[in-house]
Every structure is written in C-alpha cells, then in structure tokens.
Amino acid sequence: MTTIAVVSAGLSEPSSTRLLADRLGAATAEALSADGPVELRTVELRPLAHEITDAMLTRFAATVLAAATATVVEADAVVFVTPVFTAGMSGLAKSFLDVLDKDALTDMPVLLGATGGTARHSLALEHGIRPVFAYLRAAVVPTGVFAATEDWGSDDAGTLDARIRRAGADLAWMTRASRRQPQQADALPEVVDFASLLGGMQR
C-alpha cells in the first residue's frame, strides 16, 4: 500500500487550496494505480491552527496535531499546497513545517502547489516555497502547480488539468525512485493544561 499525505493550508472554507490539493493527490494516485493500492490521507491545517501555535510556543504537540504530523512523516509521499501571501507560503503552512522535526522530510518525495488571486504570485512557488523544502532536504519534484483565481472554470481550465496530471506523474515517478526508508513519527508528549496539573497537587 502506497500512502500519500495531502496537506492543505487553505484558510477559507470552501477553499481553492484544498481543491487543488485534492486534485493533485488524485492525479498522483491515478499515476501510481498500476503499482498497487494507493491511499490518500488528507491533513487540513486550518482546524489545527491553535494547536500549531501552542506547539510553537511549548514545543509539545497535542493529540490531534501529533496525529497529523505522524500522517505526514509516515507517508510515502506528500502533496503540500498553500495559499500565497506576500510572495511566500502562508504563516499557517510555515508554522506547521516549523513544528516538524528538522529531519522529518529528509528524502521525502514532495509535490508543491500554491494558490493566489492573480498569476502575479506564481513565482512565489519557486522563489518563496521551494527553497524551504530544499532546506528540509525533501525530494521535491520538478513540476509545481500554481493556480490563480482565473484558472478555475475558465477556457484555460484544460491547461490547469494538464499541469496537474503532469505534476501527479512526476510525484509518482519520484515515489517509485525514492530512497527514503519507512519512518515512524516520534511519540510526542500530549499537552496537559495547567489547571489539570494544579488539580493533582496537594496543598
């Protein structure tokens, strides 16, 4: 069984970021289907925003966040899609990467996607997002996919479809060629609130 973690850092609901993430995951699964079963495991960061912030401040991950990080670390490949703000990934997306262990994505096949209001933001994928994953030593596929608002439902939607299929095929190839060994996320202690700690103390 090949597992693909599909990470969406979209901030709205519904989200074009989640839509792009789902389509990239599906394209990858289709490209890998001849090799055997493929499981897509979605990690939506928006509901984890508070836990991610707490983990940055305390260096402890609560239960739901720990499960999400394990989904990413233990996958065979990752699709990572973020909205673009100020020529880079969203703060939520970057914060999630910051709470991962520094070696968690080493040699991990990763497909990058991004969304933005206009094509003006498209270079952020290469200049603001890809370098972060290079620093984490991930095996990032050559084809990234940026989708502007105008790409959805326009006459050029077929062009976006073609880019998505190409990117999925790239990630499938990278997954087959991966030298990454099966990983297991380190068990992270669960956050216990201060009031509970005080409740167990004797006066």
Rank of each mutant, 00 (worst) to 15 (best):
P182E: 02
G153I: 04
A93V: 02
V64R: 14
A31E: 01
S178Q: 10
I164V: 14
A195H: 15
P142F: 05
A5G: 01
A87G: 11
V6I: 01
V110H: 04
K102F: 03
E51F: 01
A61P: 05
G199R: 15
P189A: 05
L48V: 03
L105Y: 01
F80G: 12
H121T: 08
L20R: 03
V110F: 02
L112G: 10
A134W: 04
E126F: 02
R165C: 03
G199S: 15
A66E: 13
L11C: 05
A169M: 03
A21R: 08
A66P: 13
M174D: 07
D22H: 08
Q202V: 13
A134P: 12
R176V: 07
R18A: 09
D54S: 13
Q181H: 06
P14A: 05
R46Y: 01
V99F: 00
F146L: 03
T58S: 07
G113K: 06
H121L: 05
R120Y: 07
K102D: 13
V7H: 03
L112T: 11
T118H: 12
A70Q: 12
R176Q: 04
P142C: 00
G10M: 01
H127V: 03
G117L: 02
L198D: 15
D161C: 09
L11Y: 11
T115K: 06
A21Y: 10
E44A: 11
S33V: 05
F60R: 14
R59L: 00
L32I: 11
A169W: 00
V191E: 08
A187W: 07
P14R: 13
E44Q: 13
R18Q: 10
Y135R: 15
Q183R: 15
D76L: 00
F80H: 04
Q184E: 12
V78T: 06
D151P: 02
E74T: 03
V141T: 12
A9Q: 07
D22I: 04
V7I: 04
L11W: 10
L48G: 02
A148I: 03
A167Q: 09
V81L: 02
G113E: 09
H50V: 05
A31V: 07
G200K: 15
V140N: 05
T69D: 08
D35K: 04
T82K: 11
R130I: 06
L105N: 08
T17H: 02
A70H: 11
T106G: 09
E30V: 09
T63A: 13
A134M: 13
D76A: 03
H121V: 01
A75P: 01
Y135E: 14
A124C: 09
P142M: 00
G116R: 07
A172L: 04
A177K: 15
A139D: 12
P109H: 01
K94F: 00
D22Q: 15
T82S: 12
A114P: 12
L97A: 07
L125E: 06
L123P: 10
V38F: 05
P142W: 01
G128T: 10
L24A: 10
M201C: 10
L19Y: 06
G144W: 00
A157D: 15
F96W: 09
D170V: 00
